[in-house]
Design a protein around this nucleic acid. Structure first.
Lengths: 189, 189
DNA sequence: ATATTGACCATTTTGTTCATTTAGTCATTT
DNA sequence: AAATGACTAAATGAACAAAATGGTCAATAT
Protein backbone atom coordinates (compact mmCIF):
# COMPACT_ATOMS: atom_id res chain seq x y z
CA UNK A 1 0.00 0.00 0.00
CA UNK A 2 1.29 3.41 -0.97
CA UNK A 3 2.78 5.52 1.74
CA UNK A 4 0.36 8.36 1.20
CA UNK A 5 -2.69 6.15 1.45
CA UNK A 6 -1.44 4.82 4.76
CA UNK A 7 -0.78 8.34 6.03
CA UNK A 8 -4.32 9.33 5.11
CA UNK A 9 -5.82 6.32 6.83
CA UNK A 10 -3.83 6.99 9.97
CA UNK A 11 -4.72 10.66 10.01
CA UNK A 12 -8.39 9.92 9.47
CA UNK A 13 -8.43 7.20 12.11
CA UNK A 14 -6.85 9.56 14.59
CA UNK A 15 -9.28 12.35 13.78
CA UNK A 16 -12.35 10.15 13.77
CA UNK A 17 -11.30 8.67 17.11
CA UNK A 18 -10.73 12.08 18.63
CA UNK A 19 -13.52 14.22 17.21
CA UNK A 20 -15.90 11.75 15.60
CA UNK A 21 -16.84 11.37 11.96
CA UNK A 22 -19.00 14.42 11.48
CA UNK A 23 -16.68 16.81 13.29
CA UNK A 24 -13.71 15.69 11.21
CA UNK A 25 -13.20 17.72 8.03
CA UNK A 26 -11.39 16.51 4.98
CA UNK A 27 -9.17 19.59 5.16
CA UNK A 28 -8.18 18.49 8.62
CA UNK A 29 -7.41 14.95 7.51
CA UNK A 30 -5.34 16.30 4.63
CA UNK A 31 -3.41 18.57 6.96
CA UNK A 32 -2.70 15.89 9.55
CA UNK A 33 -1.75 13.43 6.81
CA UNK A 34 0.53 16.00 5.19
CA UNK A 35 -1.10 15.66 1.80
CA UNK A 36 -3.19 17.89 -0.38
CA UNK A 37 -6.91 17.40 -0.07
CA UNK A 38 -7.14 16.25 -3.66
CA UNK A 39 -4.78 13.38 -2.92
CA UNK A 40 -7.31 11.86 -0.56
CA UNK A 41 -9.72 11.63 -3.44
CA UNK A 42 -7.27 9.68 -5.58
CA UNK A 43 -7.53 6.89 -3.00
CA UNK A 44 -11.07 7.26 -1.69
CA UNK A 45 -14.21 8.09 -3.56
CA UNK A 46 -15.69 10.01 -0.62
CA UNK A 47 -15.45 10.71 3.08
CA UNK A 48 -17.91 7.92 3.70
CA UNK A 49 -15.79 5.42 1.78
CA UNK A 50 -12.79 6.48 3.84
CA UNK A 51 -14.68 5.61 7.00
CA UNK A 52 -15.92 2.40 5.42
CA UNK A 53 -12.42 1.28 4.60
CA UNK A 54 -11.12 2.09 8.07
CA UNK A 55 -13.91 0.14 9.70
CA UNK A 56 -13.42 -2.71 7.26
CA UNK A 57 -9.77 -3.00 8.25
CA UNK A 58 -10.82 -2.88 11.86
CA UNK A 59 -13.17 -5.78 11.24
CA UNK A 60 -10.40 -7.73 9.54
CA UNK A 61 -8.03 -6.93 12.40
CA UNK A 62 -10.56 -8.08 14.95
CA UNK A 63 -11.24 -11.28 13.07
CA UNK A 64 -7.51 -11.99 12.80
CA UNK A 65 -7.03 -11.18 16.45
CA UNK A 66 -9.75 -13.66 17.33
CA UNK A 67 -8.48 -16.37 15.03
CA UNK A 68 -5.01 -16.00 16.46
CA UNK A 69 -6.11 -17.17 19.88
CA UNK A 70 -8.93 -19.49 18.93
CA UNK A 71 -8.04 -23.16 18.73
CA UNK A 72 -10.64 -25.54 17.27
CA UNK A 73 -9.41 -28.30 19.56
CA UNK A 74 -10.27 -26.34 22.67
CA UNK A 75 -13.72 -26.04 24.15
CA UNK A 76 -16.17 -23.34 23.14
CA UNK A 77 -15.83 -21.75 26.55
CA UNK A 78 -12.09 -21.69 26.50
CA UNK A 79 -12.13 -20.15 23.05
CA UNK A 80 -14.81 -17.65 23.99
CA UNK A 81 -12.75 -16.66 26.98
CA UNK A 82 -9.57 -16.29 24.96
CA UNK A 83 -11.27 -14.25 22.23
CA UNK A 84 -12.96 -12.06 24.82
CA UNK A 85 -9.65 -11.41 26.51
CA UNK A 86 -8.05 -10.60 23.23
CA UNK A 87 -10.73 -8.03 22.46
CA UNK A 88 -10.43 -6.48 25.86
CA UNK A 89 -6.74 -5.93 25.30
CA UNK A 90 -7.84 -4.14 22.16
CA UNK A 91 -9.65 -1.47 24.09
CA UNK A 92 -7.18 1.24 23.21
CA UNK A 93 -7.89 0.66 19.54
CA UNK A 94 -11.49 0.69 20.54
CA UNK A 95 -11.22 4.43 20.97
CA UNK A 96 -12.57 4.73 17.46
CA UNK A 97 -15.44 2.40 18.20
CA UNK A 98 -16.28 4.24 21.38
CA UNK A 99 -16.41 7.55 19.54
CA UNK A 100 -18.50 6.11 16.72
CA UNK A 101 -20.84 4.40 19.15
CA UNK A 102 -21.30 7.71 20.93
CA UNK A 103 -21.84 9.62 17.71
CA UNK A 104 -24.38 7.09 16.53
CA UNK A 105 -26.32 7.48 19.75
CA UNK A 106 -26.03 11.22 20.28
CA UNK A 107 -26.00 12.67 16.77
CA UNK A 108 -27.18 9.81 14.62
CA UNK A 109 -24.94 10.63 11.66
CA UNK A 110 -26.32 8.42 8.86
CA UNK A 111 -22.89 7.32 7.58
CA UNK A 112 -21.97 6.27 11.11
CA UNK A 113 -25.24 4.44 11.63
CA UNK A 114 -24.66 2.49 8.45
CA UNK A 115 -21.11 1.54 9.26
CA UNK A 116 -22.03 0.50 12.80
CA UNK A 117 -24.87 -1.58 11.50
CA UNK A 118 -22.50 -3.34 9.15
CA UNK A 119 -20.01 -3.88 11.96
CA UNK A 120 -22.73 -5.31 14.19
CA UNK A 121 -24.00 -7.66 11.48
CA UNK A 122 -20.52 -8.93 10.81
CA UNK A 123 -19.82 -9.59 14.46
CA UNK A 124 -23.19 -11.21 14.99
CA UNK A 125 -22.72 -13.47 11.98
CA UNK A 126 -19.31 -14.48 13.24
CA UNK A 127 -20.50 -15.30 16.74
CA UNK A 128 -23.55 -17.07 15.39
CA UNK A 129 -21.40 -19.33 13.28
CA UNK A 130 -19.19 -20.19 16.26
CA UNK A 131 -22.23 -20.95 18.35
CA UNK A 132 -23.69 -23.20 15.67
CA UNK A 133 -20.46 -25.16 15.56
CA UNK A 134 -20.45 -25.48 19.35
CA UNK A 135 -24.03 -26.78 19.35
CA UNK A 136 -23.16 -29.18 16.57
CA UNK A 137 -20.31 -30.51 18.64
CA UNK A 138 -22.63 -30.78 21.64
CA UNK A 139 -20.51 -28.38 23.66
CA UNK A 140 -23.32 -26.08 24.71
CA UNK A 141 -27.04 -26.33 25.14
CA UNK A 142 -29.23 -26.29 22.11
CA UNK A 143 -30.15 -22.65 21.81
CA UNK A 144 -31.18 -20.28 19.07
CA UNK A 145 -27.80 -19.20 17.64
CA UNK A 146 -29.05 -15.86 16.38
CA UNK A 147 -30.61 -14.76 19.65
CA UNK A 148 -27.67 -16.07 21.60
CA UNK A 149 -25.23 -14.14 19.44
CA UNK A 150 -27.38 -11.04 19.83
CA UNK A 151 -27.40 -11.31 23.61
CA UNK A 152 -23.71 -12.06 23.89
CA UNK A 153 -23.02 -8.96 21.86
CA UNK A 154 -25.37 -6.79 23.90
CA UNK A 155 -23.81 -8.05 27.07
CA UNK A 156 -20.35 -7.26 25.83
CA UNK A 157 -21.40 -3.73 24.91
CA UNK A 158 -23.12 -3.31 28.27
CA UNK A 159 -20.07 -4.43 30.23
CA UNK A 160 -17.40 -2.71 28.21
CA UNK A 161 -19.01 0.53 27.13
CA UNK A 162 -22.26 1.23 28.95
CA UNK A 163 -21.27 0.40 32.50
CA UNK A 164 -18.61 3.05 32.56
CA UNK A 165 -21.08 5.78 31.66
CA UNK A 166 -22.27 5.77 35.25
CA UNK A 167 -19.55 3.84 37.10
CA UNK A 168 -15.84 3.27 37.29
CA UNK A 169 -14.73 1.19 34.28
CA UNK A 170 -14.28 -2.51 34.92
CA UNK A 171 -10.89 -4.13 34.46
CA UNK A 172 -10.56 -6.70 31.71
CA UNK A 173 -10.20 -9.44 34.32
CA UNK A 174 -13.46 -8.38 35.90
CA UNK A 175 -15.25 -8.25 32.60
CA UNK A 176 -14.05 -11.67 31.53
CA UNK A 177 -15.06 -13.09 34.89
CA UNK A 178 -18.49 -11.48 34.79
CA UNK A 179 -19.10 -12.58 31.25
CA UNK A 180 -18.31 -16.12 32.17
CA UNK A 181 -20.33 -16.05 35.34
CA UNK A 182 -23.51 -14.63 33.93
CA UNK A 183 -23.60 -15.98 30.46
CA UNK A 184 -21.90 -19.30 30.53
CA UNK A 185 -22.28 -20.66 34.01
CA UNK A 186 -25.43 -18.90 35.09
CA UNK A 187 -26.23 -17.73 38.56
CA UNK A 188 -27.71 -21.03 39.63
CA UNK A 189 -25.91 -22.79 42.41
CA UNK B 1 -58.36 11.84 44.21
CA UNK B 2 -60.54 14.44 42.56
CA UNK B 3 -62.25 13.44 39.37
CA UNK B 4 -60.68 16.23 37.36
CA UNK B 5 -57.18 15.34 38.42
CA UNK B 6 -57.77 11.77 37.32
CA UNK B 7 -59.14 12.95 33.99
CA UNK B 8 -56.05 15.07 33.46
CA UNK B 9 -53.72 12.21 34.29
CA UNK B 10 -55.53 9.90 31.93
CA UNK B 11 -55.57 12.43 29.13
CA UNK B 12 -51.89 13.20 29.56
CA UNK B 13 -50.96 9.52 29.74
CA UNK B 14 -52.85 8.86 26.55
CA UNK B 15 -51.27 11.82 24.76
CA UNK B 16 -47.75 11.10 25.98
CA UNK B 17 -48.13 7.48 24.91
CA UNK B 18 -49.39 8.42 21.49
CA UNK B 19 -47.35 11.48 20.55
CA UNK B 20 -44.58 11.63 23.11
CA UNK B 21 -43.88 14.26 25.74
CA UNK B 22 -42.61 17.07 23.58
CA UNK B 23 -45.28 16.76 20.93
CA UNK B 24 -48.05 16.87 23.52
CA UNK B 25 -49.33 20.37 24.27
CA UNK B 26 -51.04 21.38 27.45
CA UNK B 27 -53.94 22.74 25.39
CA UNK B 28 -54.32 19.28 23.94
CA UNK B 29 -54.27 17.63 27.35
CA UNK B 30 -56.84 20.13 28.60
CA UNK B 31 -59.09 19.46 25.63
CA UNK B 32 -58.88 15.67 25.91
CA UNK B 33 -59.41 15.88 29.66
CA UNK B 34 -62.38 18.18 29.15
CA UNK B 35 -61.04 20.81 31.49
CA UNK B 36 -59.75 24.33 31.08
CA UNK B 37 -56.02 24.62 30.77
CA UNK B 38 -55.78 26.59 33.99
CA UNK B 39 -57.28 23.68 35.87
CA UNK B 40 -54.27 21.55 35.08
CA UNK B 41 -52.11 24.06 36.89
CA UNK B 42 -54.19 23.82 40.05
CA UNK B 43 -53.04 20.20 40.29
CA UNK B 44 -49.60 20.28 38.69
CA UNK B 45 -46.93 22.89 38.96
CA UNK B 46 -45.70 22.32 35.41
CA UNK B 47 -45.79 20.03 32.41
CA UNK B 48 -42.69 18.33 33.71
CA UNK B 49 -44.28 17.65 37.07
CA UNK B 50 -47.26 16.15 35.29
CA UNK B 51 -44.94 13.69 33.53
CA UNK B 52 -43.08 13.07 36.79
CA UNK B 53 -46.26 12.17 38.58
CA UNK B 54 -47.42 9.88 35.81
CA UNK B 55 -44.12 8.04 35.78
CA UNK B 56 -44.12 7.89 39.57
CA UNK B 57 -47.48 6.17 39.55
CA UNK B 58 -46.20 3.85 36.88
CA UNK B 59 -43.28 2.97 39.13
CA UNK B 60 -45.64 2.32 42.01
CA UNK B 61 -47.88 0.21 39.78
CA UNK B 62 -44.93 -1.81 38.59
CA UNK B 63 -43.71 -2.35 42.11
CA UNK B 64 -47.17 -3.44 43.21
CA UNK B 65 -47.49 -5.71 40.22
CA UNK B 66 -44.20 -7.32 41.13
CA UNK B 67 -45.03 -7.64 44.82
CA UNK B 68 -48.35 -9.24 43.94
CA UNK B 69 -46.70 -12.23 42.36
CA UNK B 70 -43.54 -12.39 44.42
CA UNK B 71 -43.64 -14.76 47.35
CA UNK B 72 -40.76 -14.60 49.86
CA UNK B 73 -41.10 -18.32 50.46
CA UNK B 74 -40.37 -19.18 46.88
CA UNK B 75 -36.93 -19.30 45.35
CA UNK B 76 -35.26 -16.29 43.80
CA UNK B 77 -35.56 -17.88 40.38
CA UNK B 78 -39.21 -18.65 40.71
CA UNK B 79 -39.88 -15.10 41.84
CA UNK B 80 -37.72 -13.59 39.12
CA UNK B 81 -39.61 -15.66 36.61
CA UNK B 82 -42.99 -14.63 37.96
CA UNK B 83 -42.11 -10.95 38.11
CA UNK B 84 -40.71 -11.07 34.61
CA UNK B 85 -43.87 -12.69 33.36
CA UNK B 86 -45.95 -10.08 35.10
CA UNK B 87 -44.03 -7.31 33.41
CA UNK B 88 -44.32 -8.89 30.04
CA UNK B 89 -48.09 -8.96 30.41
CA UNK B 90 -47.78 -5.26 31.12
CA UNK B 91 -46.54 -4.54 27.65
CA UNK B 92 -49.72 -2.72 26.67
CA UNK B 93 -49.19 -0.27 29.48
CA UNK B 94 -45.63 -0.14 28.37
CA UNK B 95 -46.81 1.88 25.40
CA UNK B 96 -45.89 4.96 27.40
CA UNK B 97 -42.47 3.60 28.21
CA UNK B 98 -41.84 2.64 24.61
CA UNK B 99 -42.71 6.14 23.44
CA UNK B 100 -40.59 7.77 26.13
CA UNK B 101 -37.69 5.43 25.39
CA UNK B 102 -37.94 6.37 21.74
CA UNK B 103 -38.17 10.09 22.48
CA UNK B 104 -35.17 9.89 24.76
CA UNK B 105 -33.15 8.21 22.04
CA UNK B 106 -34.32 10.17 19.02
CA UNK B 107 -34.99 13.66 20.34
CA UNK B 108 -33.28 13.64 23.70
CA UNK B 109 -35.88 15.83 25.42
CA UNK B 110 -34.22 16.77 28.74
CA UNK B 111 -37.35 16.23 30.84
CA UNK B 112 -37.71 12.77 29.34
CA UNK B 113 -34.05 11.94 29.90
CA UNK B 114 -34.39 12.88 33.54
CA UNK B 115 -37.51 10.88 34.13
CA UNK B 116 -36.08 7.83 32.38
CA UNK B 117 -32.93 8.05 34.42
CA UNK B 118 -35.01 8.14 37.57
CA UNK B 119 -37.02 5.16 36.39
CA UNK B 120 -33.87 3.21 35.62
CA UNK B 121 -32.32 3.99 39.00
CA UNK B 122 -35.46 2.92 40.79
CA UNK B 123 -35.66 -0.36 38.92
CA UNK B 124 -31.97 -1.04 39.40
CA UNK B 125 -32.19 -0.33 43.12
CA UNK B 126 -35.16 -2.65 43.40
CA UNK B 127 -33.51 -5.52 41.59
CA UNK B 128 -30.29 -4.98 43.47
CA UNK B 129 -32.08 -5.29 46.78
CA UNK B 130 -33.74 -8.52 45.69
CA UNK B 131 -30.41 -9.91 44.58
CA UNK B 132 -28.79 -9.00 47.87
CA UNK B 133 -31.51 -10.85 49.72
CA UNK B 134 -31.06 -13.89 47.49
CA UNK B 135 -27.32 -13.93 48.09
CA UNK B 136 -27.92 -13.55 51.81
CA UNK B 137 -30.20 -16.57 51.72
CA UNK B 138 -27.59 -18.46 49.74
CA UNK B 139 -29.91 -18.92 46.82
CA UNK B 140 -27.62 -17.64 44.15
CA UNK B 141 -23.92 -17.36 43.68
CA UNK B 142 -22.10 -14.57 45.41
CA UNK B 143 -22.03 -11.85 42.80
CA UNK B 144 -21.82 -8.08 42.72
CA UNK B 145 -25.47 -7.07 43.18
CA UNK B 146 -25.11 -3.77 41.40
CA UNK B 147 -23.51 -5.18 38.27
CA UNK B 148 -25.88 -8.11 38.25
CA UNK B 149 -28.89 -5.81 38.47
CA UNK B 150 -27.42 -3.69 35.69
CA UNK B 151 -26.97 -6.68 33.42
CA UNK B 152 -30.38 -8.15 34.14
CA UNK B 153 -31.92 -4.84 33.24
CA UNK B 154 -29.90 -4.49 30.04
CA UNK B 155 -30.83 -8.00 29.06
CA UNK B 156 -34.50 -7.29 29.62
CA UNK B 157 -34.30 -4.17 27.47
CA UNK B 158 -32.40 -6.06 24.79
CA UNK B 159 -34.92 -8.89 24.65
CA UNK B 160 -38.10 -6.88 24.94
CA UNK B 161 -37.32 -3.70 23.05
CA UNK B 162 -34.16 -3.96 21.00
CA UNK B 163 -34.58 -7.37 19.43
CA UNK B 164 -37.73 -6.33 17.65
CA UNK B 165 -36.00 -3.43 15.93
CA UNK B 166 -34.48 -5.90 13.50
CA UNK B 167 -36.52 -9.06 14.01
CA UNK B 168 -39.97 -10.36 14.71
CA UNK B 169 -40.90 -9.62 18.33
CA UNK B 170 -40.49 -12.49 20.75
CA UNK B 171 -43.49 -13.87 22.60
CA UNK B 172 -43.50 -13.48 26.36
CA UNK B 173 -43.02 -17.21 26.76
CA UNK B 174 -39.93 -17.06 24.58
CA UNK B 175 -38.52 -14.11 26.47
CA UNK B 176 -39.05 -15.70 29.84
CA UNK B 177 -37.46 -18.91 28.59
CA UNK B 178 -34.48 -17.10 27.13
CA UNK B 179 -33.99 -15.03 30.22
CA UNK B 180 -33.89 -18.13 32.31
CA UNK B 181 -31.65 -20.03 29.97
CA UNK B 182 -29.00 -17.41 29.53
CA UNK B 183 -28.94 -15.62 32.80
CA UNK B 184 -29.89 -18.09 35.41
CA UNK B 185 -28.88 -21.49 34.13
CA UNK B 186 -26.09 -20.51 31.79
CA UNK B 187 -25.21 -22.21 28.55
CA UNK B 188 -22.95 -24.78 30.18
CA UNK B 189 -24.07 -28.35 29.89
C1' DA C 1 3.47 10.98 -18.40
C1' DT C 2 1.94 10.59 -13.68
C1' DA C 3 1.11 12.05 -9.12
C1' DT C 4 -0.07 15.80 -6.30
C1' DT C 5 -2.15 19.88 -5.14
C1' DG C 6 -5.13 23.74 -3.42
C1' DA C 7 -8.21 27.29 -5.33
C1' DC C 8 -12.74 26.84 -6.64
C1' DC C 9 -17.80 25.44 -6.79
C1' DA C 10 -22.08 23.36 -5.31
C1' DT C 11 -24.17 21.80 -1.38
C1' DT C 12 -24.76 21.47 3.51
C1' DT C 13 -24.49 23.30 7.88
C1' DT C 14 -24.71 27.02 11.00
C1' DG C 15 -26.10 31.43 12.73
C1' DT C 16 -29.82 34.96 12.89
C1' DT C 17 -34.20 37.03 12.63
C1' DC C 18 -38.86 37.05 13.33
C1' DA C 19 -43.61 35.18 13.28
C1' DT C 20 -45.94 31.46 15.47
C1' DT C 21 -46.75 28.39 19.13
C1' DT C 22 -46.83 26.99 23.77
C1' DA C 23 -46.20 26.82 28.89
C1' DG C 24 -47.84 29.03 32.52
C1' DT C 25 -50.67 33.12 34.92
C1' DC C 26 -54.55 35.50 36.68
C1' DA C 27 -58.66 38.40 36.36
C1' DT C 28 -63.16 36.93 35.50
C1' DT C 29 -66.98 33.61 35.56
C1' DT C 30 -69.46 29.78 37.37
C1' DA D 1 -64.11 28.23 46.22
C1' DA D 2 -63.28 25.97 41.89
C1' DA D 3 -62.78 26.39 37.14
C1' DT D 4 -61.71 28.80 33.13
C1' DG D 5 -59.66 30.77 28.85
C1' DA D 6 -57.79 35.17 27.24
C1' DC D 7 -53.33 36.88 28.00
C1' DT D 8 -48.06 37.19 28.44
C1' DA D 9 -43.43 35.83 28.32
C1' DA D 10 -40.64 32.35 26.67
C1' DA D 11 -39.68 28.72 23.50
C1' DT D 12 -39.86 27.07 18.99
C1' DG D 13 -39.13 26.64 14.24
C1' DA D 14 -39.58 28.66 9.44
C1' DA D 15 -37.05 31.47 6.40
C1' DC D 16 -33.15 33.59 5.03
C1' DA D 17 -28.07 34.90 5.07
C1' DA D 18 -23.43 33.63 6.04
C1' DA D 19 -19.93 30.30 6.82
C1' DA D 20 -18.07 25.85 6.38
C1' DT D 21 -17.33 21.59 4.01
C1' DG D 22 -17.17 17.74 0.60
C1' DG D 23 -15.71 17.01 -3.69
C1' DT D 24 -13.59 18.56 -8.53
C1' DC D 25 -10.17 19.75 -11.77
C1' DA D 26 -6.94 22.78 -14.15
C1' DA D 27 -2.41 23.88 -12.91
C1' DT D 28 1.98 22.35 -10.93
C1' DA D 29 5.59 19.35 -9.43
C1' DT D 30 8.02 15.11 -9.99
Amino acid sequence: MSNKKQQIIEAATKSFSLFGYKATTMDQVAKVANVGKGTIYTFFKSKEELLDEIVSSLIVEMKEAAEEVVDPHLSFFENAHRALYRFLEFRKKHQLLIKLLQEEKEIGTPAVQEVMKRLESTILAYIKQKIEAAIEKGEIKNCNPEITAFLMFKMYIALVFEWEQTHEPLSKEQIAELFELYFLKGLSK
